[in-house]
Simulated scan of single mutants.
Amino acid sequence: MGDPVAAGNGRSLPAGVGSDRVQLGQIAPGYDYDVLDEDEMGDRHGQVEPHRRMLTLRTDVYERILDHKGRDRFTGCHEVGHAVLHGRTLNRLAPGIRPARYCDPEWQANTFAGAILMPEHMVRAMRSVGEIADEFGVTRDAAEVRCRILGVTVHP
């Protein structure tokens, strides 16, 4: 199993914004989390198992979240999004199935992560993708997607 020091059971997950820590159970009631090594997670950076009410992050991803790396912060918030939005009913799509975008659980989790990490009212006050990425500690790609979703035009 994962590192018991990093595992859940009342311990804190790094927050999406800033250095505050949050209890996963406060935002996804009934959920716990674990951190597992790459040999156990393989290529998956994170996962949610609704039937177990468990969010799992790969060790290297968790460590980079603690180090405020944008892509990994987004991954963590994406997985929390699955827990919050999909609770016990995360529907996995069969390969090749393309539902309406808003019905896709991956699109929903990505949109949730973008909203948590980059609040709309603050993004609208920014002038460039670089400023958004720097201010919110996200990748330029994530900042560009958030602007596109919000219909905000900023400089590259």
Rank of each mutant, 00 (worst) to 15 (best):
I116P: 05
L90W: 07
D43M: 14
R73W: 03
A100D: 14
A83Q: 06
L66Y: 00
I65V: 15
E40Q: 09
Y62N: 02
R98S: 04
D43F: 09
A28V: 13
D39L: 11
D39F: 05
I97V: 15
R64S: 12
A115P: 08
E79S: 06
V123R: 00
I27P: 02
D72A: 02
L90S: 05
G81I: 14
D32G: 12
V123Y: 00
R98Y: 10
M41P: 00
C77P: 03
A109E: 09
F112H: 15
D43C: 12
E38N: 00
R101W: 15
I65C: 13
N91M: 15
P99F: 12
W107M: 06
A113G: 07
T89R: 12
G87S: 11
L85G: 03
H51G: 08
T59I: 05
Q26K: 09
H68R: 14
R98L: 14
W107K: 02
E63W: 02
M118P: 05
H82K: 06
G70D: 08
V123Q: 00
T56S: 13
L85P: 05
L66S: 04
L117Q: 02
G81N: 07
T75K: 02
Y62M: 11
E63D: 09
Y33D: 01
H78N: 03
D37P: 02
V48P: 01
L90F: 12
G76E: 08
M41V: 10
A109Q: 06
E106N: 08
G81F: 10
H82G: 02
E40I: 15
T75A: 04
I97G: 00
Y33G: 00
L117P: 09
V61S: 01
D39G: 00
G76K: 13
D72N: 07
A28M: 14
L93D: 02
L93V: 08
E63C: 05
H82A: 05
T56H: 03
E38M: 10
G96S: 12
I65T: 04
G81R: 03
R44N: 11
P50N: 03
V48D: 02
V61I: 15
G96M: 15
T59H: 03
A109M: 12
P95F: 05
D32M: 10
T75S: 04
P95E: 06
G96R: 13
V84Q: 01
V123P: 01
C103Q: 13
D39T: 07
E38C: 07
G87Q: 12
P105M: 11
E40N: 06
L36Y: 02
H121S: 15
A100M: 15
P29R: 04
G87K: 14
F74D: 04
I116C: 07
D72C: 10
R44C: 13
D43T: 15
M41W: 03
A113L: 13
Q26G: 05
E38Y: 00
E49K: 10
I97Y: 10
P29E: 00
H121M: 15
D60C: 14
D37L: 11
D104V: 13
D60M: 13
H121C: 13
L66C: 12
R88N: 10
E40W: 08
H68N: 06
Q108I: 08
H68M: 03
H45N: 05
T89A: 11
C77V: 09
R44T: 10
P95D: 08
P50Y: 07
G87T: 12
Q47A: 11
R53D: 01
L36W: 08
R64N: 13
A115W: 06
G76S: 12
L93T: 04
D37S: 07
H82V: 06
M122N: 02
